[in-house]
């Protein structure tokens, strides 16, 4: 679609949407959001990009094959579960560690976050795989 307005707006919007998607992923544990919603937002952003610029430029922009993203996500989710197994706990038990402790704030990170990133990668990978394939068919 050759629309100057859409293309110009897309430039601005897509980057905002992607940042928002990452923001959703990070805040998910404490406020609405999470890997799944984050990935859907990113998927919408890429869909917009495809409509404005075509599939080829999206492929160039993301550099990696989205199918690899699916495999990476599955692997990450599995690894996040296996970490617990190696410490002798049941598969997928959440493990937490304090990363930084400030006077009135504590930052803890755990394997569930890795798992959420895995979900993000799989969902985004699936959406991209399908819409790119549709657009190129």
């Amino acid at each position: 679609m050759q629309s100057l307005i859409l293309r110009t707006a897309t430039r601005l919007l897509v980057s905002l949407i992607l940042v928002f998607s990452i923001y959703l992923l990070f805040r998910g544990h404490n406020s609405p959001g999470g890997g799944f919603s984050g990935a859907l937002v990113a998927g919408t952003g890429f869909a917009l990009y495809i409509i404005a610029e075509g599939a080829a430029s999206v492929r160039r922009a993301i550099r990696i094959d989205p199918r690899h993203l699916i495999v990476f996500g599955l692997g990450l989710a599995l690894v996040s579960g296996l970490v617990a197994v190696f410490t002798g706990k049941p598969f997928l038990t959440g493990l937490w560690g304090t990363v930084a402790e400030l006077p009135d704030y504590k930052l803890v990170l755990g394997t569930p976050f890795l798992f959420d990133v895995g979900v993000y990668a799989i969902v985004l990978g699936t959406i991209l795989t399908i819409i790119l394939a549709l657009e190129e068919s």
């Binding site: 959001g33 569930p112 798992f115 799989i122 959406i127 795989t129």
Partner: peptide
């Protein structure tokens, strides 16, 4: 360590279910 119960259920309490679901998503995508 999460205040968003929905997300905690998805990625921690019931993560086995989620694992099943994302495998379905991945399979369906491929």
């Amino acid at each position: 360590h999460g205040k968003n119960i929905v997300n905690v259920i998805l990625v921690d309490f019931r993560s086995m279910d989620t694992l099943g679901e994302i495998i379905v998503v991945a399979t369906a995508g491929l």
